[in-house]
Design a protein around this nucleic acid. Sequence first.
RNA 1: GGCGCGAUAGCAAAGCGGUUAUGCACUGGAUUGCAAAUCCACGUAGGCCGGUUCGACUCCGGCUCGCGCCUCCA
Length: 464
Amino acid sequence: MTIKLYNTLTQHKDDFTPIDPSQVTMYVCGPTVYNYVHIGNARPVVIFDVLYRLLKRNYPNVKYARNLTDVDDKINKAAAENNESIKVLSSRFVDAFHADMAQLNTLAPDLEPRATDNIDAMIEMIQTLINKGHAYESAGNVLFQVSTDANYGKLSKRNLDEMIAGKRVEVESYKKDAGDFILWKPSTDDLPGWDSPWGRGRPGWHIECSAMINKHLGKTIDIHCGGQDLIFPHHENEIAQGTCCHDNGSENFVNYWMHNGYITMNGEKMAKSVGNFFTVRELLDKFPGEVLRFALLTAHYRSPLDWSEETLLQAKASLDRLYGALRGAPIDANDIEHAKIDAVEQFIKDDLATPQALSVLHALAGDANKTEGEEKLLFQKALRRAASYLGLLTLNADEWFRWQPASSNASDGLGAEQIEALIEERLQARKDKDFARSDEIRDELKEQGVTLEDSKDGTRWTRS
RNA sequence: GGCGCGAUAGCAAAGCGGUUAUGCACUGGAUUGCAAAUCCACGUAGGCCGGUUCGACUCCGGCUCGCGCCUCCA
């Protein structure tokens, strides 16, 4: 089966046909690095990591770029408040972002261009847009003139008349039309700025993505991803910039636009401005990154996903079952083939149908639990391999069941040696038929968050 | 006002015009010294009203409710 992707441009699930199968290009809008990312910010990173892995399995070369917006008014403001440079501030949060995303087992992009490293490309694109009559200077700003782009609105399905009729658009005096947007704006001495043909200033938000795509990936790319809230105006404006700077603007800027739905809290969009969010960082202090990743994959990526403690606990319970089926299984499973692995691949190829892919994982876990020996091993490896397509089940079962938050000190609770010693003592008690003492030890450990399970292979312990 | 999305069993969440989604929870059984884990069994759910059809959760229309974008936002 070919890969099918829902394309916001066509509003259909379309067969994916790359421009050049020997070099597939994808771009994901990355974070503005002025504080820690929340779980809603992590959704596109995880979802499109699944897409990246899928493309890599199906094409020899995939070039995946994800930008870092490291100059922006919110960054400027935060840096000024901290009395530090935007470079120092943004670098700190870039590091935090990388660390958080690594915990979610996302692969690093092939390219991670920073806005401040690509100012030249932006200035060049803006100049081209001016030369072609798509942009104008006004009161120190350079603005894109939306009325010069006949295709404006094709992604978000809006037209200029509606835009202008929209009561929420404030018409600034320096704009020719209400929908015109900033490409370049002047910086005062206390703000970060770069020299340009229009004086010292800084780029508008939308230009960085268009310019960096052009510079690093090409004139037209295969796939561009981001959250649904970026469809308008950000991606619409990217298209305007990216097409109008070339030829007559008739070529596609991006062939497949993919947008993920929101993470919600009690049904309402999670947003920094609303304040109803959990940072990835704080969640990682309570749950392994894999629980967050699993939770993000339980719903289809275009649907809203309501986030709560219950969401995490259910993801944890599902992973406990899957890892339970992997006890004793090797990590390496690349040599295995199985129909259910193919089934997982087919589901992912069908517009990233992760909930269905996960159901196959559960089926494999059941298969492994019902069998023994070589047959069991085969199912375990199949489960491991199928899960790897989703970036899941990368740990040994014991590592999983004994996970503790990074913030917990070795002095907190019991160490492995103490636990093992108590298990030895309990084993002797059981041999002596001293079940009172045996159960006492088990209860004591339970209070410390350690669960004992007796099996014919001996007693094993897990942390809850 | 314009554009768009959703409503599935106790919870979460899918596909599908007519055969079990799946996981968790619950109940019974097997197993266990007792547990845990595991296995087996167990749920006709699809907002409301019409229509199309031999047959609709699944297509069409209307309604109700919820949400989103149009301003920074993943």
